[in-house]
Design a protein around this nucleic acid. Structure first.
Lengths: 235, 235
DNA sequence: GGCGGGACTTGACCTGGATCAATTCCGGCC
DNA sequence: GGCCGGAATTGATCCAGGTCAAGTCCCGCC
C-alpha cells in the first residue's frame, strides 16, 4: 500500500507516513496541478492515469507524458520551484502526495529509500528518452506501434495485464503525444489491426503479436538483454 | 572551479574533493561511455560539448541531447545501473567525474549540495521536455529556431556569450536531434539568415534578433516570467 | 601551395502524412 | 427504447519536408 516500498524496513513505515501527506483522489478531468503553481510535492500514481501537458504560448498544449501506476509526477518543478506543466487525470485516479522537503530530509536516513527515489527519477528520464526516440524521424506506423508497446510494457511493470489495454486517452491526445494528426493515429491503429498485430476496438486494444509489435516499434525483441541483432518481421 | 558549487561551504570543499575523482579530458570524437557499460559515475561538463545518442537496433542512432557546460551526463543509467546511451565529445571537452555512491552518501551531509543535485537532475528533465516540444508537431523552421534559441540560452546560463555561437555539432547531428533531414536544417538556417534573425556562416551563428527568434521558436518572449500572453512577431 | 575529402548548400521532384469533410458509432440521458 | 453529442473512422486532396542529385566550399594534410 506504500508508494515507495522497495527495500524499506517495516520500522521506517511510520516515518514515511509522515511524509505521505495524503492519498489524493481525482476524478476524470480534474487537475493535480497547473503550470505556474508553486512546487511543494511530488506525486506517485497509485491507480489511474495522469496526463502532463506543456502549455504553448499560442494556447495549444503539447502532451509530454502519460503517467501510469508506480510512476512519478511533478519532478520537472524541482528546478525552478514551480510547475511548468499541467497534470490532469484522464480517469478516476489515486495518487500519493509527498512533501518534497520532508522527503529530501528523510530519504538519506532510510536505507533504500534514497536509492529508490533516484531510480524512480531516472525512470522518468528514460521514459522521456523513449518518447524522444518515438518523435525523431519515425513513420506514423512506428510511432503508434511504439506507443502501444510502451504502454503495454509499463502496465506489466505495474502488475497489470499488458496484453489487454484500456486506453485512458483519446486519439487526439495520443496524436498530440506522438506528433501526428488524430486521423493518422486512427488509421495506423486500424492498419496494425488489419495486419494482425493488435485487435483494436475503440479504446480497447489487445496485443496479439507482441514480438511483431516490438519489431515495428523498433524495440529490442524481448526481455533478453543480449546484444544480438534480430530481424523485424516484415508484415 | 568546483563542479557543483552552489551554496557549498568552503569547509566542505575537501570532502567534495573526495567525490570528484577526476577531471576527465576528452578529445573530439572520444567516448565518455557507451550503451551497455555499467553505471558508476555521473559527470558534469566543465567545458566543451557532449552528445548523447540512443542506439537503434537497425544500427542508426537517435541523438538525445547535447550537454553544455554545467549540465549533467549519465543520469539515465541510475535506473538499471547500466548506461543506455552513448556519450561522445563533439570537441575537446573537460568533465568532472563523480562517483555516484559517494555522492549519494555525501550529498545529504553537505547543506545545499543535495538540493543542487536535485536541481541539476530536474534541469535535465526540463531540457528533455523542451526537446519533446521541439519534436511534437512543429514546422522545420520552428524546430531550428527553437534549437538555436535554446543553445543560446543555455550557453548564457553557463556564462558564455549567447549571441555568438560556435556550433560543435554537424548539420547531420542537428537534423537527427530535431527529427529533420540535414538538407532541411541547412535550408531553414539559411532562411532564418535571409530573414535577418541570424547570421549563419558555416558553424558560426550570430543571433541578430533574439526576440524574433524566440517568437519563431514559440518561446515566451523574455526572462520576464509573468503569465501574460503575448504575440509572436509575424515573419 | 596544391590536393583530397568531408561538410555544407542548393535545386528538382515526390511521398507520407496533414488537412478538410462527411459519416458512423457508441454511450449516456431522458 | 429513442435521441443527442462527442469520439472515432474513413475518404479525398494537398503540401511540407524528405529524397535524390549535383555542385561548392573549406580545412587539414602532404
Amino acid at each position: 500500500m506504500l508508494c515507495l516500498p522497495a527495500g524499506v524496513a517495516r520500522s521506517d513505515v511510520e516515518e514515511l507516513d509522515r511524509v505521505v501527506r495524503a492519498r489524493v483522489p481525482l476524478d476524470r478531468g480534474e487537475a493535480l496541478f497547473r503550470a505556474g503553481e508553486p512546487f511543494g510535492h511530488i506525486y506517485v500514481v497509485r491507480t489511474g492515469t495522469i496526463r502532463t501537458t506543456l502549455p504553448e504560448q499560442d494556447g495549444s498544449e503539447q502532451v509530454i507524458g502519460f503517467h501510469l501506476p508506480g510512476e512519478l509526477v511533478g519532478l520537472e518543478a524541482i528546478r525552478d520551484q514551480y510547475h511548468r506543466c499541467d497534470a490532469v487525470a484522464l480517469e478516476r485516479t489515486s495518487l500519493c502526495m509527498l512533501r518534497f522537503d520532508q522527503l529530501e530530509e528523510l530519504a538519506p536516513r532510510i536505507p533504500g529509500l534514497q536509492r529508490q527515489l533516484y531510480r524512480l527519477i531516472s525512470r522518468e528520464l528514460v521514459e522521456d528518452q523513449q518518447h524522444l526516440v518515438a518523435l525523431g524521424r519515425r513513420t506514423a506506423r512506428e510511432r503508434v506501434a511504439l506507443f502501444v508497446h510502451s504502454l503495454s510494457e509499463r502496465l506489466e511493470a505495474a502488475g497489470y495485464d499488458g496484453t489487454e489495454l484500456r486506453l485512458a486517452m483519446s486519439r487526439d491526445e495520443i496524436a498530440n503525444y506522438l506528433g501526428l494528426a488524430l486521423e493518422t493515429v486512427s488509421r495506423e491503429l486500424a492498419r496494425l489491426g488489419e495486419d494482425g498485430l493488435l485487435a483494436v476496438d475503440r479504446r480497447r486494444v489487445r496485443v496479439l503479436d507482441r514480438p511483431a509489435l516490438a519489431g515495428v516499434a523498433g524495440r529490442p525483441p524481448s526481455p533478453a538483454t543480449g546484444g544480438s541483432r534480430s530481424q523485424t518481421s516484415g508484415s
